[in-house]
Design a protein around this nucleic acid. Structure first.
Length: 513
RNA sequence: GGCCCGUUCGUCUAGGGGUUAGGACGCAGGAUUUUCAUUCCUGUAACACGGGUUCGAUUCCCGUACGGGCUACCA
């Protein structure tokens, strides 16, 4: 079902870490491309050299790779429509800008940033704020207002200039948005956007339109913050004579802050102690470094599932979707219009569900490289058993070690208050007897251990509640965790005996004073 | 300020002219469990407001309020 005419792009700027809003945009593009048999493309929009951040492009690619939504075309991924970095395409943009000037759709402007800034502050408190548009451009320093000789002279003297779009005076611009329907803008409201900056590089608007066209992009799916400037983009397509071949537009609702007002921002993560990035970003200082979902112990599939539902739903009551199922179910029609608040609790729930439904083997493979070095080495089988016992008791991957460290090293904290009333040195002999009885279990498994325990309790007229909690604390140090009999089966009697003997000393010391 | 977009439980959302307004997270209670967790059950809680249109509006239209975005030689 390959359809080479359906091309979707994710076009981030390498200005630092990319938060999950960007990942969601990438995901939606990827999902649609896969579903429709189209192509998912990565384009790096690095036209602002002042905001360029070293390593940001690598971060974007690493993030996409971790998520498993890798582009079929892009820098480092090949493709016939490259280069895929805008900074490597300046000659192309110049060509298109020249066309626009020739056809009268764009003009040279010699006003400096300082001058424009001055106009703006002067008009700040008036009823009509300064805007570079059809009302003001004839009073400004540009090739529309200046005599041709002066323009020629300026150009020959290499005077710095920008190129601006000549927005028509009185036109309605109709944007067809797949999510919002028809959105109408009036050209009087639009300013003459800069197309080419004084440094010779294009602005987003020009590069974006040229590249989408040249790269054969059929669908532009991006955040809602781009909706207002889409009017300019339509004007550009029109100026190039490409209006009939414009891509389809879909503007996604924004992801909002977990609390408070506004859209989700980079700072929100550290402020609330939650990840808002896919993977960690190491900045120059601590303030500019962030942790990610990966470091917080999330499975990429779970994060993606969570993200997919922030602004989209399948129209059914199913919530857990594999990537393949998302590809199958995804559609633009079910994308919402309103901003969606980021809900970390829900994200954790998705992750928990994914861990519970993963195979222990799979989890063991994930955990193996994360095993702290101080832990004694363990076999693959042991790790698998550990995962089987713990997977219903964790929310993140990190919880495995946080809650289950005692599978790999001696108990370091005994939560003895739960057995304070039960403990007496006399119990030691009872426990020794029980351990001896267990040693005879054959086969040595959880069922037999349980059976043996039950008869022992009956024979000695003891209650489960008197003995088992002592074992729990003795073996694991905590009241929380897997069934005691499962631990015993996994560890064997020698280990159990060692642990209990160590615990006895501790119990005596802390509980008998 | 101007322009554009939006508004269903606290949160993510389904729905759509006549419904007991459905699900999920969270929270609360209960069952199961030697603990914790899982699982299951129950409960909690919403159509922003005001006008129309209509026999009937949460659903359609218009206002208002509120929220969001844009308003740079940033993307």
């Amino acid at each position: 079902m390959k359809n080479s005419s359906l091309r979707f792009r994710f076009a981030p700027s390498p200005t630092g870490a990319l938060h999950i809003g960007g990942i969601r945009t990438a995901l939606y593009n990827y999902l649609l491309a896969k579903k429709l048999g189209g192509t998912f493309i990565l384009r790096i929009e690095d036209t602002d050299q002042s905001r360029y951040v070293e390593g940001a492009e690598k971060y974007i690619i690493d993030s996409l790779k971790w998520c498993g939504i890798t582009p079929a075309e892009g820098p480092g991924f090949g493709g016939e429509f490259g280069p895929y970095r805008q900074s490597e395409r300046t000659a192309i943009y110049d060509e298109y800008i020249a066309k626009l000037i020739l056809s009268g759709h764009a003009y040279y402007a010699f006003d400096t940033s300082e001058e424009l800034e001055k106009y703006r502050t002067e008009a700040e408190n008036t009823s009509r704020p300064f805007k570079y548009d059809s009302f003001t451009r004839l009073q400004l320093n540009n090739s529309l207002a200046l005599p041709p000789e002066t323009v020629k002279e300026y150009l020959e003297k290499n005077m710095p200039y920008t190129v601006r779009l000549k927005v028509p005076e009185d036109e309605s611009i109709h944007v067809q948005d797949k999510i919002r329907g028809e959105v109408i803008f009036h050209s009087q409201e639009l300013d003459d956007k800069v197309l080419r900056k004084a440094d010779g590089l294009p602005t987003y608007h020009l590069a974006n339109v040229v590249d989408d066209h040249l790269m054969g992009i059929s669908h532009v799916i991006r955040g809602e913050e781009w909706l207002p400037s889409t009017a300019h983009h339509v004007l550009l397509y029109r100026a190039f004579g490409l209006e009939d071949n414009m891509p389809e537009f879909a503007h996604l609702p924004l992801i909002l802050k977990p609390t408070g007002n506004g859209k989700l921002s980079k700072r929100d993560g550290v402020k609330l102690g939650i990840p808002v990035f896919p993977i960690s970003w190491v900045g120059e200082s601590e303030e500019s470094s962030f942790t990610g979902f990966r470091e917080a112990g999330f499975l990429p599939e779970a994060m993606l599932n969570f993200l997919a539902f922030l602004g989209w739903n399948p129209g059914t009551e199913q919530e857990i979707f594999t990537i393949d199922q998302l590809v199958e179910a995804f559609d633009i029609a079910h994308i919402g219009k309103a901003g969606a608040r980021f809900d970390y609790e829900k994200a954790k729930w998705f992750n928990q569900q994914y861990i519970i439904h993963s195979s222990p083997e799979n989890l063991a493979n994930l955990l193996l490289p994360l095993l702290p070095e101080k832990y004694k080495p363990v076999s693959q089988d042991y790790l698998i058993s550990f995962c089987k016992l713990m997977q219903e008791r964790v929310v993140t991957i990190n919880d495995f070690f946080e809650n289950g460290y005692y599978f790999f090293e001696p108990v370091h904290t005994f939560d003895t208050k739960n057995i304070a009333k039960k403990w007496s040195p006399a119990l030691k002999q009872t426990i020794q007897n029980l351990i001896e009885k267990w040693s005879a279990c054959s086969p040595f498994n959880q069922e037999q251990i349980q059976l043996s325990f039950d008869t022992f309790m009956q024979d000695n007229q003891l209650k489960t509640g008197d003995i088992l909690p002592v074992f729990r604390i003795g073996l694991a140090g905590t009241m929380k965790g897997p069934a005691v009999f499962d631990l015993i089966e996994l560890w064997g009697m020698q280990e159990v005996s060692n642990r209990m003997n160590k615990a006895f000393d501790h119990f005596d010391k802390t509980l008998l004073s």
